[in-house]
Simulated assay, not measured.
Amino acid sequence: MKKSITYLAIMSATAFYGIPQAFAEDTMYVAGFGGSVETTFREKIIPQFEAKTGTKIVYVAGNSTDTVAKLQAQKDRPEISVALIDDGPMNTAVQFGLCAELKEGPHSKNVYPNARVAGNRAIGLGYGATGLVYNTEVFEKNGWPAPESWRDLEDPKFEGRIVMPPISNGFGLLGLVMQARLNGGSEKDIDPGFAAMKEISKSVLAFEAAPGRIAELLQTGEASFGVWGSGRVRALVAQGAPVKFVFPKEGAAVILTEVCAVEGAPHHEKAQEFVQFLLSPEVQTIIAQREGWGPVNKETKLEAKDTQGMVYGQEMVNDMISVDYSVINPNRADWTSRWNREVER
């Protein structure tokens, strides 16, 4: 992990430090995801904060690994003040001392306990889930009941019909951990997960990393069942695809998008204020409606039509299964090598 982050840091920092210093001093930089998330922030969230505070914000797009790399490269002279990062890489950022302690505020106090991060150096911004996905038309045509359990992946009738991401993808990683937990193990005892995945792999059509290809396989029915993320499935449903996300009865693994104020960065107080702003019910509603992230602020109220396939409300939040990335991250490289030898051969 450290080697790859260091390499990316050098590449990312080269471009980022090209920003004129005078401009940087007058501006607060926020790093986060690209794509639709970037659009939502630029169009719906940042303008509100700028109008409210008079602070100019520049959004720096990149995936979580890129953002951690930038923060590490800038550690001695931070320019980014706020960072949005997925839970796994955020654990690394916190371990590297890149995130400042969060000041409790009017909205963070209303965040669900399992969206709080140990050490108070980051906090959840939105819930996602790793669970099951299926093509409703294929299931109806074959007279199959809707899947409801992680155990359904073991059913021989799905041979050659299953799609799921590999371990290099967060959904695939969490799928492995869930199989370990289902079979008496955990992150700390991953062997039962590998044993289960070796059997399930016999029915897997493709271990596919590209979201577009997974969407294509599910939409056409070439793959009719699989493991994927709630946000990905929600986006596919919005395009009219005959698919549905399932929260398995044993529980779905939580995917938490997190946010932190950067340690030692400029605009420290404004960064803390921006984090609170993102946690407000108003902004949580925007993020939920546009990105499908389940609100972490329990005061956020959504209409039923906006909550399909989303982690929403106390009951669903309580049913989510959180994993320990402080155990997972140090083992990730070894697990990947083992996955390549034993599962995806």
Rank of each mutant, 00 (worst) to 15 (best):
L174R: 11
W144Q: 10
N169T: 12
I10E: 15
I321D: 01
F41V: 03
M178S: 13
V111E: 04
R290N: 15
V254I: 13
N169G: 09
N340R: 13
G126C: 12
G160A: 11
G126M: 10
P20E: 15
A146F: 00
D319V: 02
E199A: 03
H268W: 09
R161S: 14
N63V: 03
D152N: 13
P113V: 12
G251K: 12
V177Y: 09
G54A: 11
Q289S: 03
A13F: 02
Q48L: 15
R181H: 05
R161K: 15
T53G: 09
S64Q: 01
D324S: 07
P242T: 08
A31C: 12
N340T: 09
A223W: 05
G128L: 05
Q308M: 06
G240Y: 08
A24Y: 03
L71R: 06
D306Q: 02
G124P: 01
F277M: 08
G143Q: 10
A195Y: 08
P281C: 07
G229F: 02
K188E: 05
T136E: 08
F49V: 09
D152G: 03
D334Y: 07
N142Q: 14
V311T: 11
V37M: 12
E291D: 13
S108K: 01
Q272R: 09
I80F: 08
Q289V: 03
A51W: 08
G309C: 06
T92H: 04
S186M: 01
G128Q: 13
P248F: 09
P192K: 00
N183S: 04
Q219G: 10
I214H: 05
K301D: 02
M197V: 05
P192T: 00
I328Q: 01
E269F: 04
C99P: 10
L205A: 14
G170C: 02
D26E: 15
L84Y: 10
L218P: 01
V204D: 04
H267P: 03
D306G: 07
A252D: 01
M28Y: 02
S337H: 11
R161Y: 03
D152Q: 13
G105K: 10
F96T: 03
E140S: 15
E140Q: 14
K70V: 04
T130F: 05
N318T: 12
V246F: 10
W144K: 06
E43A: 11
E187H: 09
A93Q: 00
K305P: 04
T40A: 08
G32P: 00
T27K: 10
L182S: 08
